[in-house]
Structure formats: C-alpha cells, structure tokens
Amino acid sequence: MIRTVIIDDEPLARKGIQQLLATQADFEIIAECEDGLTALEKIDSLKPDLLFLDIQMPELDGFDVLSALQMDPLPLVIFVTAYDEYALQAFQNHAVDYLLKPIKEEYFLKAIQRVRFLLQAKNEPDYELRLQELLLHIQQRPDFIQRFLVRERNKLLIVPIEKVNVFEAEGDYVCLITSKDRYLVRLTLSGLEQKLDPALFVRINRSTIVRLRLIGELEPLSKGDYQLTLINGPKYTLSRTYREQVLKALQ
C-alpha cells in the first residue's frame, strides 16, 4: 500500500483527489490536512510515502511545509496548484510532479504511475536531489519573507514577520526577538536581509537587523559609530559601515 497524505485547505479539493484515488487499489489515504501546521505534525508522526501538496494555503503554504519537513528520506511529493507562474516554472525546471486544478485525470494517472515506479526503484538518489534543488530555488523567490516556522522542543510555531522587532545573528542561527519572546531559526543574517522588506527593516551592524519603525534615538559615539536606542528600550551600536543606509532609510 502506498500511504498517502492529502494537504489542501479546501474540502472539495481534497475530495477531488479522493475521487481520483478511489479507483487505485494500491493507494491508501492515511490523513487529510487542511493547513500546513497540522500537515507537518501528521507527516512527522505518520511518515507517509506520498504527499499531495497544495501550494496556496493561508499561513504555511506548500513550500513552507516542504522546507520544514524533517523526514529522511523525504516522501514523494505531487504538488497541486490552481495558479502560480513562479511555482510552475520551478516544477518544470526541476522535473518534479505537479498537477493543475482542475485536475485532468490523464495527468493524474501518469503522476501516480510515476510514484509507483519511484517507490519500487526505492532509493532513487536523483529524486531527493531534485526536491532539494527545487527548495533552494523556491527560497530565492523574489518576494519578502512573511513568517518563520520555529521548532520549540516538540512543538511547531509560526512566527509572523509582523511580530518580529529585531534579528540578531547567533552563530549559525538567527535569533528572532519579539516583544515577548526570542526564537532561534537556522538562517544566515545576510541571507535573511535579502528576504526582508527594506521599507520595514534595516541592518545596523554586522549582526543585527532592526525594525525601522522602532528606532527611537541616535546618539553619536566615537569613530562615526552611533548608539541606537529602540523605542521599547534596547540599545544597539549602529556601526559606521551601515550608517548611511540607516539614515537614508529613516528619511
């Protein structure tokens, strides 16, 4: 049996895949999830062979789910999307399976035939590589990051970008500082900087990015550095390397 999980926020869309799978005796639907967070929990506990993964979902989308997966090896994934030009291009470039809504039966059958083949061939090294490359590609998407997925002990948490006040580099990690908490995510500060809206955030020294709106005071220190005070209290050093861009952003 090929143990399958369907992830889509629309009940009728999940039903559609059920309908199509109903005639395939070797597939078993072990879970249906209507959001990304539940999906991650289910995948962690059930270790399915195959995911039907919708791309557009509120909060965590399909790509967020994929990048947060900790299963090894990764399950096979058939992406499902109604419309997303960027994603389609990525799928084509990396030769992973995807289906367009409304789903055409012929393409559906082809896709699951390929799943059967890949599962029999077992560790086809190529497949996982293609998925990894797809993920890398997706992470370079031109849009700004909206949220972070944080693992805390055995819990998964979504931290929306609106809640983050400061990002601090800590070794291989970046610490997200909100008004109440601190969270660690595995990221580089420079990589993160590219994914932040420059109208909202600005880098102030080698290891800190702050929310522009929160900058309260600038006081000159020696050698062109400044002491930067946030309106909610914390003080940082604005190094002269970043001084120009901060002053520009503040205007």
Binding site: E10, L12, G16, A82
Partner: peptide
C-alpha cells in the same frame, strides 16, 4: 481572477461527480 477562478473550477469539477 487566477487563483479564485481555477480553484472554483476545480470545485465545480469535483461537484459534477458528487
């Protein structure tokens, strides 16, 4: 248009059988 339209068409496709 695009998201909404294709998702709706998908729902209709499923409903036709159901």
């Amino acid at each position: 248009q695009p998201h909404f339209l294709f998702n709706t068409l998908n729902s209709i496709a499923v409903l036709i059988k159901d």
